[in-house]
Design a protein around this nucleic acid. Structure first.
Length: 423
RNA sequence: GGAGAGAUGGCAGAGUGGUCGAUUGCGGCAGUCUUGAAAACUGUUGAGGGUAACACCUCCGGGGGUUCGAAUCCCUCUCUCUCCGCCA
């Protein structure tokens, strides 16, 4: 959520920057600004009346103490009249506040100036590429065929147990999952991230804090009996750890990581994009989260995307890093890098990580602040990234590393898998 | 699931209608003392809005109500704890 102060102080700039996200800034921002000034006018009036009423109540208290009941009753009558207009103003104020809030939550974050113009993924900027496109042997097949051939993943069994998009990992397929999770967690720990194991269901407040609610309600599984949501990413519980928290400046940056399953309804998805592991309702992911000093957050964004790139290099997967254009980035993000690996049998790029700086957009909702010395608390910046999402990594590993003799496990994973080949 | 108790500042814990944003202790910060540290002593120490700075307004789990006045009374919701039952 944008800060009202920002809108108040630099309305035109906000509108200009929102254009890159193809958001109707003039409509929303002008309206918010208009309501804001009305709201503030009402608030001032109301506070004046309250101050008067408080003063009268105090007087009454003193008069009662000294036994001057008649005088007290006199003032009481005055007070009753005040209370009446107080109540009316209160209602007017509440209406303004609600209206303003409802508009404000619909406004996306401002994109950073370096974010490219554009509407579609085609307009994202490729900022880095690494590795060669693998040449596969004759008869190479996509990962879903490999999964069946080596009995690694059973998609049909998942349908029986739950439904489409909930695969069952088996044998070396299950072990590979576990190996990747541990590999990612160990690397994150080495990079200074503290591991947490958060709940995988969250309440409404948490969903609101990171921006999933109310904007993306339909994307999450909702356990209605208890009014809880299955998390779409560990970002939600991990970032919400710091909701309503005031950190000391010395504690920044806070670095947390965590492995969780993630649940996404992916309503409306269909076709070959959802084949195999490409798009699932439940998947595993290791997430990295940082809470940063505003002056450091972009430096940290770069650090985080290089960290993720390092993982992909270690796994020997060809990848590219995209700087998302205004139209392709998420609601809450100010700048996002996507990392895509090349899946050689499908012959396409698969997104395996998204690293974003949200600046103060989430912290404003979260009331996540830090304090420098004795100064007033100010909003911190939040960042997160996948490091990494498993299914598409598995897809690329299976496809790219297939040989007529079997699938070769990358060197770095062998201590974790305990085997060097799937055959 | 049954019964009961409770929710107050970073923590502990007072406060049952009138200068209570809140006694006190611990913790934190600053100072005195000390070669330094500890101890002791003194002072200071919540958040948001508002202001040039004051003033002023709001917040004692959330919401609503009674009253001139609510942390204190009423209603309601949520959560926590204890005991019993069940249980990985």
């Amino acid at each position: 959520m944008l800060q009202l102060q920002t809108i108040r102080e630099s309305k035109d700039e906000v509108i200009r920057r929102l254009a890159k996200k193809h958001f109707d800034g003039p409509k929303f921002i002008n309206e918010i600004a208009r309501i804001d000034s009305e709201r503030r006018k009402t608030l001032t009036e109301l506070e004046t009346i309250k101050a008067e009423a408080n003063a009268l109540a105090k007087q009454i208290g003193e008069l009662m103490k000294s036994g001057k009941k008649a005088e007290a009753d006199d003032i009481k009558n005055k007070s009753v009249a005040l209370k009446d207009s107080e109540k009316k103003l209160q209602e007017v104020l509440a209406a303004f506040e609600e209206e303003q809030f409802n508009l404000l939550v619909q406004v996306p974050n401002l994109p950073n100036e370096v974010v490219p113009e554009g509407r579609t993924p085609a307009e994202n900027a490729t900022v880095f590429t690494h590795g060669d496109i693998p040449k596969l042997h004759e008869g190479a097949v996509p990962h879903w065929d490999l999964a069946a051939k080596y009995d690694l993943i059973d998609f049909e069994l998942g349908v029986k147990l739950t439904g489409a998009g909930f695969p069952v990992y088996k044998n070396k397929g299950a072990k590979l999952q576990r190996a990747l999770i541990n590999f990612f967690l160990d690397r994150a720990a080495q990079a200074g991230y503290m591991e947490v194991q958060p709940p995988i269901m969250v309440n409404k407040d948490s969903g609101f804090g990171t921006g999933q609610l109310p904007d993306k309600e339909g994307q999450m599984y909702h356990v209605t009996v208890d009014d809880l949501y299955l998390i779409p990413t560990a970002e939600v519980p991990i970032t919400n750890i710091y909701r309503d928290v005031i950190l000391k400046a010395e504690e920044l940056p806070v670095k947390n990581c965590g492995y969780t399953p993630c649940f996404r309804r992916e309503a409306g998805s269909y076709g070959k994009d959802v084949r195999g592991l490409n798009r699932l309702h439940q998947f595993d992911k290791v997430e990295i989260v940082q809470i940063a000093h505003p002056s450091k957050s972009y430096e940290i964004l770069e650090e985080m995307r290089h960290y993720v790139a390092g993982l992909l290099k270690e796994l020997g997967l060809p990848f590219r890093t995209l700087l998302l254009c205004g139209g392709d980035m998420s609601f809450a993000s100010a700048q996002t890098y996507d990392m895509e690996v090349y899946s050689a049998a499908q012959e396409k790029w698969l997104e395996v990580s998204s690293v974003s700086n949200f600046e103060a957009f989430q912290s404003n909702r979260l009331k996540l602040r830090f304090r420098e010395g004795n100064e007033k608390p100010q909003l911190a910046h939040t960042l997160n990234g996948s490091a990494l999402a498993l299914p598409r990594i598995v897809a690329a590993l299976l496809e790219n590393n297939q040989t007529p003799e079997g699938i070769i496990i990358p060197e770095v994973l062998r201590p974790y898998t305990g085997f060097d080949k799937i055959s």
